Amino acid sequence: MSEDPSPTVFLAIYIITFLIGFPNSVLAFCSCIRKIHSKPIPIDIFMLNLAISDLIFLTFLPIKMKEAADNMIWNMPFFMCHSDLFVYLLPVYSSSLFLTAISAERYVCIAFPVKYRSPKRIIYTIPICVAIWVLVAATAIFVYKTAYMDYGVADNTTNQQTLVIEPQRCYSNFTAKQLTELLPVLLSIAVVFFFLPLLTCCSCYINFIRILLKLPLIKRQRRLRAVGMALGTLLVFASSFAPYNISHLVGFIKKEIPKWSTTALILSTLNASYDPIIYFCISREMRSAIKVVLRFFSRFYAYLKGQFTQNIK
């Protein structure tokens, strides 16, 4: 299907994403739970769901590490390839929608501050989260079924003989029949899960910045930090999801999976290590939790250094 970059590159990115993303996502999850327990607001619920999405992805990321370490050859039981595809797609789709919901909340917070503080808004937030998860799960299942429709069976050009793939790879070598079904689905997914959310995020953050710059009572430092967070979130959203979703558009036009689509997908993987930056900028509890962890490691390092110095003496 494609000429992939070196598996070493994939493995390095997977490891970096896991090492950065997993501990920070755990911290974000705990911080959101603590804040929701004390004083729940809609944006914290969306951030909690984003953290859950990242943790689902990061928990199964070692499977992708194993695949990359094996030179992109699938040496694990093949049923795991099927489940891995589902788990891999689920957080990619859900992250874009929850980031969009967070951008909308940031806009509502500054445009309608009185309504934003209404406790009734929590009632609407939970069904929105449930609807997002249902939509994402249904989409991932549909892509899964389309991708593996008649898997291992060639089309009429191969006289309906069993397709032998050596070496065995996961999610590749589609038949013409599979591509006919899969490419329109991928284009629809790109529209629903990227292009429309991107327009929504841009609209929300542009208005957010416009209103913020007109408020004289907010300190300049805080205002600049909020503007930087908004622009940073848009940059993360675009850099993480644009290449892979553009590959869906190109694939639909060319009637084939682009050779660089796998490379583009790796940028979506990096999103799990970018999201903690958003947690850090938005959540005071997240910043406090990171400070506590850093203080602990600093004291632990000082203790080990002291013990090492005593042993030398």
Results as ranks from 00 to 15, higher is better:
2 S>G: 14
2 S>A: 14
34 R>H: 13
41 I>Q: 12
44 D>V: 05
49 N>C: 15
55 L>S: 09
57 F>T: 00
58 L>Q: 03
59 T>H: 00
61 L>H: 03
66 K>F: 12
68 A>T: 02
69 A>F: 11
71 N>T: 03
74 W>G: 07
82 H>G: 02
84 D>M: 14
93 Y>G: 03
94 S>W: 05
97 L>D: 01
97 L>H: 05
103 S>L: 02
109 C>N: 10
110 I>N: 06
110 I>Q: 06
110 I>C: 07
110 I>A: 07
111 A>K: 15
114 V>W: 00
119 P>C: 11
121 R>F: 03
123 I>P: 00
127 P>R: 14
128 I>P: 00
131 A>W: 02
133 W>P: 01
140 A>N: 02
148 Y>K: 05
155 D>A: 09
162 T>G: 07
164 V>C: 05
166 E>I: 15
167 P>F: 12
168 Q>C: 06
169 R>V: 15
172 S>P: 00
174 F>I: 04
177 K>D: 14
180 T>F: 11
183 L>H: 06
185 V>D: 03
189 I>K: 08
189 I>S: 08
198 L>S: 07
199 L>I: 13
199 L>Y: 11
204 C>F: 08
214 K>P: 03
218 I>N: 04
227 V>N: 08
234 L>P: 01
234 L>N: 13
238 A>T: 14
239 S>R: 01
245 N>E: 08
246 I>P: 00
248 H>R: 07
249 L>R: 03
249 L>Q: 05
251 G>T: 04
258 P>R: 13
259 K>E: 11
260 W>F: 13
265 L>M: 08
266 I>L: 15
267 L>R: 03
272 A>Q: 14
275 D>G: 00
285 E>Y: 03
286 M>F: 15
290 I>S: 09
290 I>P: 00
291 K>Q: 13
297 F>V: 11
298 S>G: 15
305 K>N: 11
307 Q>S: 10
